[in-house]
Amino acid sequence: MAAKQDFKRSFQRVNEIIEAHGRNPVELISILQEVQEEYRYLPEEILNYIATAMRISPSKVFGVATFYENFSLEPKGKYVVKVCDGTACHVRKSTALLNALKKKLELKEGQETTQDLMFTLETVSCFGACGLAPVMVINDEVYGKVTPEKAEKIIDEIIKEEGGRGNDQDH
């Protein structure tokens, strides 16, 4: 129950964030960004709380949170794996890379995040690093010229570092 325990750590932070922005509705986007950093996504009840604390309507907060691609209303994994599918990466077989990762992470059709909330797999349109195509980014780490085999190895290493799958020690 990793996600639930997360709240314990960060609910205090939500208040600090709102206060730091002086409860100013104009700063809603920054507040949501910081809250998302804390939770890795924007849980409904927290958005509701933000609306209450800032005295704006929940529908407005929801509108902002769904407008921007960067905000997620679904829980994200500890490691967000972004595979570039821009033109340069696409011709360098990013599709094969993506399929390999899906298989490796045991993701079903339409599923982005693993059950244990360890990994989220996403595609992006361009990192601007086309010379390294195909490119994969995990959290802030950039990997260039990635083959399916190389990608699997990187994932294995992370799992090893985390002490194995399904044993989410971080949380």
Partner: peptide
């Protein structure tokens, strides 16, 4: 005002 879940802190 709005139906929704509570924020839980322990399971």
């Amino acid at each position: 005002r709005i139906e929704g879940s509570d924020i839980r802190f322990s399971s």
